[in-house]
Simulated scan of single mutants.
Amino acid sequence: MAERITAKPLTAEGFRAFGDVIEPEGAPDKLINAGLCGRFHDRARLDFGDGRAGLSLFDAEARNWPLRVDLVERHPEGSQAFMPVSGARMIVVVAEDEGGIPVNYQAFVSLPGQVVNLLRNTWHGVLAPLGERGQFAVLDRIGEGANLEEYPLDPPLWVDPGEGA
């Protein structure tokens, strides 16, 4: 029987075990550009093995409720940050690891403009912009060697909207 989970709002505290939520919360760390720009400094735990950081653009098709998840993946050689450039919200599905198997799935729904950085080796669903096509800048590892591990789900996982979704 397929497992069902309910999505919850994306918060830094709720997501910390899987990665970082990057947004301009509170006062900036410092003012720059003659006081005209607030800098929220070093907000992500970026982690790349050998290789280098690369910036790519992704164009993802819209997803809707309930979300069917039939594949999760992880990146053993580096973290991966998703930065919406089109303002799309996203459904972020993550799981803990138990001996190479994803377990204890959770789902989060971002607000427009929230950035997600997934920690190295974090199981996650594929990019899923909510309700509209989404364009994302993606910061991740570029280099030699495999940095993608996929795990098909059969039966699939289903994600239902939660409060605020």
Rank of each mutant, 00 (worst) to 15 (best):
A146R: 08
R141I: 12
R74L: 03
R68M: 10
F48D: 04
V115M: 15
A88V: 08
V85M: 05
A34N: 13
D50R: 08
P24I: 13
I5F: 05
T6I: 14
Y151M: 06
G99C: 05
A95M: 03
P66Q: 12
H41I: 14
F15N: 00
Q80Y: 11
A7C: 14
A60G: 10
P129L: 06
V159P: 00
G19F: 04
P66H: 11
Y105A: 00
G162A: 11
G145R: 03
A95I: 09
R133P: 04
V72D: 02
Q135G: 13
W158D: 03
A2W: 04
G49M: 08
G78K: 04
E77R: 15
G19C: 09
Q135E: 12
L157M: 04
V109P: 00
E96F: 00
R45H: 15
R4P: 01
D29K: 07
A137H: 12
D50S: 13
L36E: 09
G54Q: 09
P112S: 01
A81D: 12
D29H: 14
G19Y: 01
P9T: 10
G78H: 03
G54W: 05
G164D: 03
A137W: 07
G131F: 11
K8R: 13
G164N: 06
V85K: 03
S79N: 08
L139A: 14
L139N: 09
I91Q: 04
E132F: 04
V69F: 14
I101T: 12
Q135S: 13
A62T: 07
F40E: 00
G143I: 08
L139I: 14
Q114Y: 14
E132K: 14
G26P: 09
A44S: 15
D97G: 04
Q106A: 14
P129I: 08
E73I: 07
P76L: 00
V72N: 03
T11E: 06
P156C: 02
G162R: 09
A7N: 02
D29W: 04
V109H: 01
N147Q: 06
V126P: 02
A7E: 02
A7V: 13
V159Y: 02
V138D: 01
P112A: 01
E98A: 15
G100E: 00
F48Y: 15
H124T: 06
V115Y: 08
I22P: 10
R45D: 15
G145F: 07
D47H: 02
T11G: 13
L127I: 10
G143S: 10
M90W: 05
G35F: 03
V115T: 13
P9F: 14
P24Y: 12
V126C: 05
L153W: 02
L71E: 09
L111M: 10
D59R: 10
E23V: 12
Q106C: 12
G51F: 05
